[in-house]
Amino acid sequence: MQPLVNNAKIPLSKSNGKLDLSFEQKRGKTMMVDCYQHPPLKASRGLYLDGSSHVTVYLMESSGGLVAGDRNDFNIQVGQGANVTLRPQSATKVYPAFNNQPSSQQISINLEAGAELEWDHEEVIPFKDASFESKTSIQMTPSSSLLWGEILYPGREKRGESFVFDKCQTHLEIWVDHHCIAYDTLHLKPSEQNLKKLGALETYNFIGSLWFISPKLEGNDWNVDGLLEQHDNHKSGVSTLNGNGILIRWLSNRLPLLKKELENLSNYFKEIENTV
């Protein structure tokens, strides 16, 4: 594993990172059976934490961020009954786009019957003048389950950047067989939109989302009210999806609280997932 350096040099030429991972359940244990990696994307080896049969893999990005025109592709295949946790090791940092070339990221995930995937979790930080497009497509079956968390930053908050990027588009679609159960797109273009208005992003800087889709939700009397605080600078909502799914969405100016709640909720959903 190579440590990520915070001030990694910006590469001069465009880069196309690629990471294709395949997982299969073998003799009661999930194995990473295939791993194709092209820099700057890299995957750790499969780790079995606490001696469990499910595998955890760290996703690494060795360039320090996406620069104009860069593109990262992820293809994740989770076979029948396999149980996988993927952890991006750092946030996706998007550098300013020169010459109008957006950086992009494509994540394509296929979950077979009984497969479980936790993506823990995606963070995007679009720097000043950055232009970013991401597309995540997830195909699953009624018996597979997914836990997907993400936080979109307004910029480098420690430098006081707040929606000074040029454009930031995120797109998440989740299909269960032939049914679309989530199609969530955020196309933020601060110069063309009134993002600060009541009803839009208001005075909030961070957008958090946690998606949990699982057959275990059927007939489950879940209740997350005690896990979510509501404040003037931090609020959230809970919604059920069409099918066995839940979305928690946050608008917040309190990043540590947002992260804590995201983690608590993730743990709560993992408990549901692990009930027999």
Binding site: D184, T185, L186, H187, L188, Q193, L195, L198, G199, A200, L201, E202, Y204, I207, K235, S236, G237, R249, L251
Partner: peptide, 9 residues
């Protein structure tokens, strides 16, 4: 685009 997140909440 679902950027009217406030309304959504």
């Amino acid at each position: 685009s679902n950027h009217a997140v406030g309304l959504e909440l």
